[in-house]
Amino acid sequence: MTSVFSQDELAVIRRAYAKQILTLSSIADDPRLEEAFATVPRERFLGAPPWLMSRGASGYEAVASDDPVVLYQDALFALASDKGVNNGSPSLHARCLHALSLREGERVAHIGVGTGYYTAMLAHLVGAKGHVLAVEFDSVLAERARDNLAAHSNVTVVQGDGAEWPREDVDAVYVNFAVGRPADAWIEHLRLNGRLIFPLGVPRPKPSSGGGTHSLYGAGLCVTRKNAGLAVQWLGHVSFVCAQGRLSQPGEDRQALQAAFEAGGMEFVRSLIWRESAPLGRCCFTGSGWALSYDEVPE
């Protein structure tokens, strides 16, 4: 893999890319996140060319150039095209990482790491005194992530089912696949003031043309544990590849969740009710042991 640009020129291109991605994400001021996008080399995590760019419903198309400069755009590139697993949209991840608001020294669980591009950004944001637990279900992708992240002493890569991690309390959980409900571990191991970002979604009835199953409806949610409950911020409509492993099993709530998406109002959800009675008439969705409510969590 060679470039017509020198390493110094590529560094400038990455910095311009970082500025553009944050602007696309309507982020006015987040210098630490901008630095993460400017310094983590995307080509290190995509393997050797030819790279496959996602064309949405049309599947994948091979990129004509093998110059890594072409990777610095707001596009999805395949990590495992037969499974529909991509290195996701930089602007979407910028929006989510900005909402996650990581601080130096924090401990974060990254669930569904792929080959580790956004894991490396998490590692940058928490710094040398922080730690990132990186969990990937696919054994091939997990091994690639382990190699790609070997230089990051503050990252531990685990090959396993994301539903089972983290196993210790963390300050943040960052999930990169769609699920019909949050895993127990994501909620129950979240510290006070901890943040969980995950894509809530209902799968399409059939696999996508490009491989894998993606969400038919999806919402990015940021859940924050407060003294009085679990506050929710809606991050917008999202589409992700759906979970593998235990979380891929159709749950009893799937039809009710799809009906909630179709009825609308997910953007007005302000709290997640967990293992408590849901307030009657105040919920966008009520499932088995959890609900999404319009009520604010008291400060």
Rank of each mutant, 00 (worst) to 15 (best):
W51Q: 12
Q7N: 14
G160I: 10
S101C: 08
D82P: 01
A142I: 05
E34G: 11
F198P: 03
L292R: 03
A123P: 00
C222F: 02
G127K: 01
T286F: 02
Q20M: 10
L133I: 06
A109L: 05
H189A: 00
S91N: 12
P199M: 03
G105R: 09
L292N: 08
A94G: 04
D169F: 00
R32G: 04
A278T: 00
K19Q: 15
Y118A: 03
Y174R: 01
N227M: 15
A75R: 14
G265Q: 03
A64V: 13
W234M: 06
L230V: 00
Q258R: 13
A57C: 04
E106C: 01
A172K: 04
S3L: 07
L247W: 07
A57G: 07
D8Y: 06
E168N: 04
A260I: 00
V135H: 06
G59Q: 08
V223P: 02
F177S: 10
A243V: 05
S288C: 04
N154C: 04
A123T: 03
L196K: 02
L125M: 07
P49Q: 09
E164P: 03
S6T: 15
Y117F: 10
A78K: 13
A183H: 02
L97F: 05
E188I: 00
E43N: 12
L22H: 01
L141M: 14
E299P: 01
R181L: 00
A80T: 10
E252D: 10
L230C: 02
G162K: 11
H131W: 06
L22E: 07
G265V: 08
R15N: 09
E143K: 14
S26A: 15
M121H: 09
P182N: 01
A99Y: 01
A18W: 10
K129W: 05
E61V: 14
A228Y: 09
D82Q: 13
L102E: 12
A38R: 04
F137L: 11
C283T: 05
V179Q: 09
G162C: 03
R204I: 00
Y17S: 04
L46Y: 10
L97H: 08
S65L: 04
P298F: 03
V223Q: 02
Y17C: 03
N227Y: 12
R270K: 15
H124Y: 05
E252R: 10
F285D: 01
V232A: 05
S101N: 13
S215L: 08
V12P: 05
Q255L: 15
V157E: 00
I273R: 12
M121V: 04
W165Q: 07
G194R: 00
R107H: 09
L216E: 15
G287E: 00
R282P: 00
E9L: 06
L247P: 05
A145S: 07
A178Y: 06
E267M: 09
P199C: 01
P50E: 14
P90V: 07
D295C: 06
L33I: 02
S153I: 05
E276Y: 06
G116V: 03
A48R: 12
N148C: 13
F285Y: 08
E188L: 00
F37K: 09
A62N: 11
A243M: 04
